[in-house]
Design a protein around this nucleic acid. Structure first.
Length: 481
RNA sequence: GGCCUAUUGGAGAAGUGGCUUAACUCACAUGCCUUUCACGCAUGCAUUCAUGGGUUCGAAUCCCGUAUAGGUCACCA
């Protein structure tokens, strides 16, 4: 391989929405590739569809990427002057010049067909049994007079590229190995729209070439765009980058993850808000469609960079499994050192309805109780609310326990002993239970359950000594009434 | 429909002709631990690699057909 050139890869989203899980994965693998070979990772914007662009989408995508630890060496916010600008709409003149060059070379031509005419053409071909639509080259050899006539009608031309005849586009895909396409299967496609803005397939080629991009890792949906782009490289006599086409992520129904999949969270910001850890998402995405040689499951960023090899990317689609993500997230939370954990968890603690008399240090020690239990940050908010907001509607089973023989004895006794206590902590409370056990003979569930239900309204949850600790003497007593 | 790609357990997958009576992880089930849940620990979970043929002493691994699924065929990216 020609490793003389510095590796340069890019993530080039269109600013039409927030950072999507598929986009994040694509960015991730490009980033890993760049870092593995000491190259640059570039964040660039493909905004040629001006109608769908959303204000703020670009910044939010960039920042979500950085949050994930995928940090661009160059971006719209810190461009390298050598390669700027990083937004396609800021270099429209450049595309026009290159398009004109192709026209001058006789390999691209103006097309005056309207959308309606094109649609008609398509229908006609369909009716004749041709299922894959190709432009019929109606405008290929238009004379100056004919063009003038169209212009007088007010028609604005697009520019189409003239595909070569019987030409085979071959390339070695980093993921799939040798791939080839025949030029005859591809119609002359538009490179400049009638509004003077380039199409994606044209703009990427110009950008990748001008920005010195050496490797392109992208989604499978771009596989069939590759020959189109190769045609442009060929006409210009440029060396194309190395391509690698990763499979898409599919939903549990086996379909491409789409924005309409409401049972799967789509955007990074949603994961962040729920208390997913960026390192966990990084790790999860890394292992979605990629496996290491030694079957490891947990990788730091540095380890991932070291281990990554695009040829080990799966060539069959991967299903997004949220349970697996939760497991990974839980693993990361459990293994955080306490300082980092506090920083991560306190915003979620404070979202709960906590009594105002608790200070930050108390909240921190409370949060520690949950460290091994929660899967995502939001869990602690919910669990604390369960504790601090007293529940009074019991189900049948709970009612039965509260009316049991043991409950009638244990609850008043516990209350009485607790009132006499000066210091409430795990040890003193445990002692009370021991005494009650000795005095009444009740033990196990009979002993603990009535009090647990009285205190939390639930038979499940965190350890009861902790709950009493958290609630404090007054609140505990008031709940026993 | 044309072109392209894939198909190993519920999920991610290892596996590239004999070391595979198919690894590992998640999920699931059971047991232990525990006042409950969770954690942790232990055990179980594909006689079989979509399917039919072929090549071979030997195939999940190579070849052909079939089925199924996905991608793409825009003045969207």
């Amino acid at each position: 391989m020609d490793d003389k050139k510095k590796v340069r890869v890019r993530y080039a989203p269109s600013p039409t929405g927030y950072l999507h899980i598929g986009g994040a994965r694509s960015a991730l693998f490009n980033y890993l590739y760049a870092k593995k070979y000491n190259g640059d990772f570039v964040f660039r914007i493909e905004d040629t569809d001006i109608e769908r662009n959303i204000p703020g989408a670009e910044q939010s995508q960039l920042h979500d990427l950085i949050w994930l630890g995928i940090i661009p060496d160059e971006s719209t916010e810190n461009p390298n002057p050598k390669y700027a600008p990083y937004r396609q709409t800021e270099k429209l003149d450049i595309y026009r010049q290159y398009a004109q060059k192709l026209v001058d070379m006789g390999v691209a031509y103006e097309c005056y067909c309207t959308e309606d005419e094109l649609a008609e053409m398509k229908e006609e071909q369909l009716a004749n049994g041709v299922k894959s639509f190709k432009y019929n080259r109606h405008c290929l050899n238009l004379t100056e007079e004919e063009k003038e006539k169209y212009r007088k009608e007010g028609r604005k031309p697009t520019i189409r590229i003239k595909m070569m005849e019987n030409h085979e586009f071959k390339f070695r895909d980093l993921v799939r190995g040798d791939v080839k396409f025949n030029s005859n299967d591809i119609g002359d496609f538009v490179i400049m729209k009638s509004n003077g803005i380039p199409t994606y397939n044209f703009a990427v080629v110009i950008d990748d070439h001008l920005m010195g991009i050496t490797h392109v890792l992208r989604g499978e949906e771009h596989l069939s765009n590759t020959p189109k782009q190769l045609q442009i490289y060929e006409y210009f006599g440029w060396e194309p980058p190395k391509f690698g086409h990763m499979t898409i992520i599919v939903n549990p129904n086996g379909k491409k993850l789409s924005k309409r999949d409401h049972d799967i969270l789509q955007f990074m910001s949603q994961y962040r808000d729920l208390g997913y850890v960026p390192e966990a998402i990084f790790n999860f995405l890394f292992l979605l469609g990629w496996t290491s040689e030694d079957n490891r499951e947990i990788f730091t960023k540095e380890e991932a960079i070291k281990a990554f090899d695009p040829s080990r990317l799966s060539s069959s689609p991967s299903m997004f499994d949220n349970k697996r993500l939760l497991w990974t997230n839980q693993y990361y939370i459990k293994h955080m050192d306490n300082e980092k954990y506090f920083e991560f968890i306190m915003p979620f603690v404070k979202k709960a309805n906590i009594p105002s008399n608790l200070n930050d240090n108390q909240l921190k020690s409370i949060s520690l109780i949950f460290k091994n239990e929660i899967e995502i940050g939001q869990n602690i908010t919910d669990m604390l609310n369960d504790i601090f907001v007293k529940k009074t509607d019991y189900d049948e089973e709970e009612k039965a326990i509260l009316n049991s023989e043991s409950a009638k004895v244990v609850i008043p006794l516990f209350k009485e002993k607790l009132e006499k206590l000066d210091v409430i902590n795990q040890d003193t409370v445990k002692n009370i239970f021991k005494e009650i056990q000795k005095e009444t003979g009740f033990k196990g569930k009979d002993l603990y359950m009535p009090i647990r239900i009285k205190l939390t309204g639930s038979m499940h949850g965190i350890e009861m000594f902790n709950i009493i600790d958290i609630l404090g003497k007054e609140e505990t007593l008031s709940r026993l009434i």
